[in-house]
């Protein structure tokens, strides 16, 4: 029978690289990423899973790293904005964000990019309504959203 643990070893794939770390159960994923691995592109804002600034992809699916415990990544793949942006395949989406002025202060942008990537992976040619519905859990307080919708559309198969 398993004993309750107060520290856990986690081995996982971080931005394509196998890594290991030791975490406490209460450590949220965002702290592991920012403090242990120095990946500060992931931002903490609302801390209640509403805003999406802390979005990372866990096995390709967006999650709120502010709340998901770090131990959940055991044996799984985590993609942060740093890993996403370093890959060539990110360039159409990144350039579309540049061309459409789809970012301003940049605090929501890492999460926004990852949510958009996850959408385009699932649906390469989403309609405007699908973009809005999929992204509705990511808040941007600067742009007014229109330019982000346009950027995601431009980066999709429909927009090329």
């Amino acid at each position: 029978m398993a004993e309750a643990q107060d520290t856990l070893a986690v081995a996982f794939e971080l931005n394509g690289v196998p890594v290991e770390a030791s975490v406490e159960p209460q450590t949220p994923l965002i702290d592991l990423l920012r403090e242990r691995f120095g990946l500060t592109g992931t931002k903490r804002s609302c801390d209640v899973q509403v805003c999406g600034a802390c979005t990372v992809l866990l096995d390709g699916a967006p999650v709120s790293s502010c709340t998901v415990p770090a131990f959940e990544v055991r044996g799984r793949a985590v993609l942060t904005v740093e890993g996403f942006a370093a890959d060539e395949s990110a360039s159409p989406l990144i350039e579309a964000f540049v061309n459409n002025a789809a970012f301003q202060c940049g605090f929501c942008t890492p999460g926004m990019l990852l949510a958009a990537k996850s959408l385009l992976d699932a649906d390469p040619a989403p309609s405007e309504d699908v973009i809005k519905d999929y992204m509705r859990g990511n808040v941007c307080r600067c742009t007014g959203y229109k330019k982000i919708v346009e950027a995601v559309h431009e980066a999709s198969e429909a927009g090329r």
């Binding site: 920012r34 740093e82 540049v98 942008t109």
Partner: peptide, 17 residues
């Protein structure tokens, strides 16, 4: 924008970073 590369890569540093 001159801050595009910083902000679209996760490199942009805010005070908390």
């Amino acid at each position: 924008r001159v801050d595009a590369d910083d902000k679209l890569s996760g490199r942009a540093q805010f005070t908390g970073d």
